[in-house]
Simulated assay, not measured.
Amino acid sequence: MSREVAFLTDVGGGSPFEIAGGTVTGTDHLAVGRPNQDAYAFRAEGGCLAAVVCDGCGSGARSEVGAALGARLVTEQVLGALRRGADVASPETWEEVRLGTLAPLRAMAGAMGGSLAEVVSTYFLFTAVGLAISGDTACAFSLGDGLIALGDELLRLGPFPRNEPPYLAYGLLDRPPGGEAPRFTVHRAFPSSALRTALLGTDGALDLLESSSRQLPGGGGEVGPLSRFWEDDRTFGNPDAVRRRLALINRTVTRPVWKEERLEREGGLLRDDTTLIVVRRAHSARA
Rank of each mutant, 00 (worst) to 15 (best):
G135F: 09
V119K: 03
S142C: 14
R72H: 12
V32S: 06
A89M: 09
T137W: 10
A71K: 09
I133W: 07
C48F: 04
S63I: 10
S63H: 02
F126M: 11
R43M: 11
D87M: 12
L69P: 07
L116Q: 05
A89K: 04
T101D: 03
D87L: 12
G151C: 03
C48D: 11
G33P: 13
S115E: 05
L99S: 12
E95M: 08
L105I: 03
E96F: 05
A103W: 14
G144I: 00
N36V: 03
V129E: 06
A149M: 13
Y123C: 04
V52S: 02
E64P: 10
F126T: 12
R106E: 14
A149P: 12
G146H: 02
T93E: 09
L143W: 01
C54R: 08
F42W: 14
E76P: 12
L131V: 07
G70F: 00
A44Y: 05
A149W: 09
R34W: 08
G58L: 01
G58R: 00
D38Y: 07
R106V: 10
A111E: 12
W94Y: 06
I148W: 01
Y40E: 11
R62K: 11
L79M: 03
V53R: 14
G46V: 09
V120Q: 00
S63T: 07
G130P: 01
E118G: 11
L82R: 06
T101N: 02
L73N: 10
D87C: 04
R84A: 12
V119Q: 11
D136L: 09
L99E: 13
A103R: 15
Q37M: 06
V32D: 06
A89T: 11
G70C: 07
E153M: 12
A149Q: 09
R106T: 14
S121T: 08
M108F: 13
L49R: 02
A128L: 14
G47M: 14
I133D: 08
L105W: 10
A89C: 04
V97R: 00
V88T: 13
L125M: 13
L69D: 08
L155E: 14
D55E: 05
R62L: 11
C54S: 15
C139M: 06
G113W: 04
R34C: 07
F124E: 07
D38F: 04
L116W: 05
L147E: 04
A71R: 03
L82E: 02
A41D: 15
L155H: 10
A140S: 10
E45S: 10
Q77P: 05
L150T: 07
G56I: 03
T122K: 10
W94M: 07
V65R: 08
L73F: 13
W94S: 05
G151V: 03
D136M: 07
L73E: 11
V119P: 01
A51P: 01
A86N: 10
V74P: 00
L150A: 09
T75C: 15
A61I: 13
F141C: 00
A128F: 08
E95R: 13
G113D: 09
L102N: 00
W94K: 02
G46A: 10
L102Y: 03
